[in-house]
Design a protein around this nucleic acid. Sequence first.
DNA 1: TTAAAAATATGATAATTATCAGTTTTTGAG
DNA 2: CTCAAAAACTGATAATTATCATATTTTTAA
Lengths: 228, 228
Amino acid sequence: MAKCEQCIVKQLNSLKTLTKSELLRISACKTSQFVKKGDVIFDEGEHLNGVFCISSGICKVSKMSSNGREQIIHLVNKGSILGERSLVNDEVANLKATAISDMEVCFIPREEIISDLKKNPDFTMSLLKDMASSLKNADNTIVDMAQKTVKQRLAEMLLNLEASFGYNSDHVLDIHLSREDIANIIGTATESAIRLLSEFKKDNVITLKGKNISIIDIPKLKKIAQGF
Amino acid sequence: MAKCEQCIVKQLNSLKTLTKSELLRISACKTSQFVKKGDVIFDEGEHLNGVFCISSGICKVSKMSSNGREQIIHLVNKGSILGERSLVNDEVANLKATAISDMEVCFIPREEIISDLKKNPDFTMSLLKDMASSLKNADNTIVDMAQKTVKQRLAEMLLNLEASFGYNSDHVLDIHLSREDIANIIGTATESAIRLLSEFKKDNVITLKGKNISIIDIPKLKKIAQGF
DNA sequence: TTAAAAATATGATAATTATCAGTTTTTGAG
DNA sequence: CTCAAAAACTGATAATTATCATATTTTTAA
């Protein structure tokens, strides 16, 4: 099994503040698993008992609305940690995590991380900064959801995908989302998302081949996102 | 000037984990000010250099969207602290705080709180829990904004006002919001908010006299909030 | 390989929400 | 108290978005 000291996850977030001996201890007790596309990593209401490190793959983090529709809160790439929040306040999960590609995920039991929280102030502080940053993003998302049109939100989402996941060798966005997932990110009906994507394609803002999306006119997309 | 040890703010949040001597130190260096209804406490982009404790009154925390409309992210009652996030990550304010009633606010300089963050792990942990809780609320708000109709959101907002601010002696909600503020909380046009409030009144869900709102049929309001 | 299922796409229409225009009511400064 | 400004309200209409129906394409599993 891979060691935490070399893991990509360790380089990209709060875990980077852990000492070598702390990492060794965690490495010894972690479990690793492969998750297939579509599989649920954890669901709303579950007791997590630890955090998940994403070594490879992408998952969506979502929540059911009382209307019975899924809202995707964010997409999580390799190198990230899931479940920190449930760890901190010891509540059941408020969100659901589902693989949207095949993934490799490590699980670190609650007690191990908690012990670091208590002993390593740098780690706590780093976690605090991560949360502050997440909170800022969440506030900005609230503003967008409340004030922007579906078209603006779609444009913005495409720009975010580019920033977070980049392109593969063919200048195709390195993430494959179903039209339904796209709709559930921007909070609209699947048909509306499809229509707007077609419109963007017709207007030469993007190209579309199935789930392969390329952005070809970033300035235009930015203008659309701001309401022009 | 009032002392921090007896302040209501101290009893309701992370500050409660501070020791007596820490509170005394803060008490000595804090400044206190009266803020009139409508006054801005801080604006987006400002460097805060400290946190604000609300001894009395209510303020709104909002952000301008690129469409030029204000979105109110939350309402903050006495006993709360503002600006913790800018403190943690040392960034300029992402949000604007405006008094919606006359207020009394204390300001604690950044260095004083930072010193507690570094020395008192209970305080850091408490702040972490607060942030985790805020983040959960923010995620739920995103779902509501993205998936619920304006009518559902208005119903939910009224229920939230009741939970957060309660009633005065005449069974009137203990917060006075303009119709524009109500619209900016639920993310709609002022006229739409007015129309829906009138509809709720006609349907005997609430009573309305100017800014005095009473909820008279909570079960019905809950049903509306869930889409029935 | 092929049939069934799922996903994508498109049209027609309904429902929701925003915008504009104008009126009435309330508020607050002098 | 008075009057001008702001806020609240109402109607008409336009724009956006959802829903339903159905066709086409893609994917999946046997």
